[in-house]
Design a protein around this nucleic acid. Structure first.
Lengths: 252, 252
DNA sequence: GCATGTTTTGCATGTTTATGCAAGAACCCT
DNA sequence: AGGGTTCTTGCATAAACATGCAAAACATGC
């Protein structure tokens, strides 16, 4: 068996199961554990996996290098929200995911065995999805805005216009039962509007501080929200308003 | 048995099984292992397979190893190349940078005080540039190809067509004085060609293993290279060929 | 026909690479 | 703290490798 063959099999297995055990690989390949350890060491040095005691696991530090440094705020809440938000997904769906730290967390929480088509204008989301082998990833290019971590502008709008999605994961903005979904930036709002227009349903995962707030630019009507993922501590009266407008509330 | 006959059988077998063993081919063809090794060497140089210890494998798994694999290989060399490559930059320029681990290294080596406009279809390059406040970053979207780490396809081509650049940092797969710059993937080559067409000059930073090799898809003529950044240990005769064709050689 | 040059092939040479084993260090769990 | 496991390092060996060389097959020119 070629060395290269083993490396490929290790990569495959890692992509499929997320981890490998040195001893198991050795008996499976019919080589000594030393050889497997050498393989793992090389692959680790090549940045293809992360070596751990007893075997190796997939690595995720790619996303750590990107915009997500900013998402240091309320990490646990966002992680809980993300886990709950991916619960609405089903294999075979097509998604829009735009920017924001919560959406990046959601992208990272997508299970590896889900087959999806995802279009995003966020570099962070794209980086997270680049690791998922079953996700068909479409990058929505354009002028990159550093503060948002996303691409906006005419090119982005044109790219969105060519696509249609089942769900749109709409990120980071104001959320109010009377004013609807709002954004802080004009160009950003334009892209969000285009995504909303070309989607069958909108999903919003919002931390408590987003609820009952509004920003200048309107993105979507309050009754356009299909799923609203919130913390368990969210004010019940606000939730009731959205529920009345047709949203399905999901608790993290 | 004719040499060409063996080559064809090797290609067939490789396409069918993904790998070949030197010893096995020797006994099957009834020739010495040396002859098989010579065959494999030639086919590898022609970009039809990848030579590994014990035999050869298809090119696909090479590309399948995500971009971060190759970035692990020869890290110091690439870092040196990158530092030398950014020496050709001047403030105010507009650049195309496509994919490849060397180009990611170059993107990371760009000084923070340089004011540039950069368009890239590589997520890795984009992530690196997202940190540089003076760089106007344009993301060239499209269908993301995991193996390449870049976006390709019609959307990408359309985005490239709208832009013009002073320099194009071409992540070369193969580099040969007669066959020019070549790539392993058809869609990838198409994007590279578009970038080359819309640029005033091409910059290539190549490690020694890229020199005097070729892949199936042609990207640019050998005399299209403006700057060629190479290691100090690069073979002088190859460099002389490119110099004769108009390239300015820069040593890392 | 014969000499000359080229290509292909196999062999001998020395070098490189992969692998397994042994010894000692590092690590995990109780 | 201690025992068992896992890991790294160094080393030996066998396989795979590149290279130079010479013989054979082939083409080319006179």
């Amino acid at each position: 068996m070629l060395t290269e063959e083993r490396h490929q099999l290790i990569r495959d297995r890692l992509a499929a199961e997320g981890k490998v055990l040195a001893g198991e690989l050795a008996s499976r390949f019919g080589v000594s554990e030393d050889t497997v350890r050498r393989d793992l060491r090389e692959l680790a040095k090549a940045g293809q996996l992360r070596r751990v005691y007893g075997g190796a696991v997939t690595l995720a530090p790619f996303a750590a290098a990107t915009i997500s440094q900013r998402s240091g705020h309320a990490v646990e809440e966002k992680l809980r929200l993300a886990k709950a938000a991916v619960g609405v997904l089903a294999s075979g769906q097509t998604l829009f995911i735009d920017g924001g730290s919560t959406n990046e967390a959601i992208a990272r929480a997508i299970p590896r065995d889900l087959e999806l088509t995802v279009a995003t204008n966020s570099l962070g989301v794209a980086s997270a999805l680049a690791d998922l082998p079953l996700v068909e990833l479409i990058v929505l290019g354009g002028r990159y805005v550093r503060d948002l971590g996303t691409c906006v502008g005419g090119d982005t709008l044109a790219a969105v216009a060519q696509l249609g999605a089942d769900l749109f994961f709409l990120g980071s903005c104001g959320l109010d039962a009377t004013r609807g979904v709002t954004a802080f930036d004009s160009a950003e709002a334009e892209v969000k509007r285009a995504m909303a227009r070309n989607s069958a349903g909108i999903v919003i995962a919002a931390t408590n501080d987003k609820l009952a707030t509004a920003a200048p630019y309107r993105v979507a009507a309050p009754d356009a929200i299909r799923y609203l993922v919130v913390e368990r501590t969210a004010p019940a009266d606000i939730l009731a308003d959205f529920q009345r407008l047709g949203a399905e509330i999901r608790f993290a």
